[in-house]
Design a protein around this nucleic acid. Structure first.
Length: 251
DNA sequence: TAGGCCATCTGGTCCT
DNA sequence: AGGACCAGATGGCCTA
């Protein structure tokens, strides 16, 4: 999507950068109103940035120029061309990274739409992590239940218990229904709807009897998130921000 | 206005 | 040697 257009706009950026470099303006550099900005506006309707090529860092440029001059007898123009080339690669790399981030946002269970603010990168990553953990635990729970009911009394019966009737049983279908990411909807939060969907299958299977699963007997997964290593744990600020963004997304 | 988020440039390091 | 990856620096836009 944007990478193509962004890539197409790279020469403009480089040209703007080259102009800035030649004229050595103060820091303002308003000339960079690149087409990237327009593309950016089309793709991300929430952020209206006016990204411009930053004014060159003269000392750094001089240092790199010296470096390249030492490496090979390059003229000033060759050095500039090389710098533009490297900048373009880095821009493309970051654009690709952003595309991947957008792809991740698309499969995340939060409201999407032109009037909904996009999740920040950090929020996307944190939400994705929690989502994956929750789906894993749900899947384990399903497997455990199936093993309990139809596993034939294999030993232990833990989350990874025996699985002899795999594929044929309706409960397994319910379990496997959890595997693909659910379609994003405004009402879903952390995939809770997918759990409920599969869970309703189980309810019908139990035909009115009280469901014995831990989903019924324990608080919902999102209220008791799986423990995270300290370095991965969501901080209070991250949580508050996530909460704020989720609230915004559900509007 | 401060803080958050972002894109871009840049130099360094590692890999092929 | 060239490319990929990374982190720091910088400045712009937006929102509370």
């Amino acid at each position: 999507m944007s990478s193509d257009s962004s890539r197409a706009s790279s020469p403009d950026m480089d040209a703007a950068y080259a102009r800035a470099r030649d004229s050595r303006p103060p820091v303002s550099s308003t000339q960079g109103a690149c087409t990237t900005t327009a593309d950016h506006h089309q793709q991300h309707t929430h952020h209206h940035h006016q990204h411009q090529a930053r004014a060159p860092l003269t000392p750094g440029s001089a240092a790199s120029a010296a470096k390249y001059r030492l490496k090979k007898q390059a003229s000033e123009e060759e050095i500039q061309q090389l710098r533009l080339k490297i900048n373009g690669r880095e821009r493309k790399r970051m654009h690709d990274l952003n595309l991947a981030m957008d792809g991740l946002r698309e499969v995340m269970p939060y409201a999407h739409g032109p009037s909904v603010r996009k999740l920040s990168k950090i929020a996307t990553l944190l939400l994705a992590r929690n989502y994956i953990l929750m789906l894993s635990s749900s899947l384990d729970e399903m497997k455990r239940l199936v093993a309990e009911l139809y596993g034939g009394g294999g030993g232990g019966g833990g989350a990874h218990g025996p699985f002899h009737c795999a594929g044929a049983h309706p409960l397994l279908a319910a379990a496997s229904a959890l595997a693909p990411p659910p379609p994003a909807s405004a009402a879903t939060a952390l995939g809770l709807s997918s759990i409920r969907a599969a869970h309703s299958l189980m309810k019908s299977h139990w035909a009115g009897l009280p469901c014995p699963c831990t989903i019924c007997q324990t608080p919902p997964p999102h209220s008791a998130p799986p423990p995270a290593p300290p370095h991965l744990a969501i901080t209070s600020t991250g949580l508050s921000r996530l909460a704020a963004e989720s609230k915004e997304a559900l509007k």
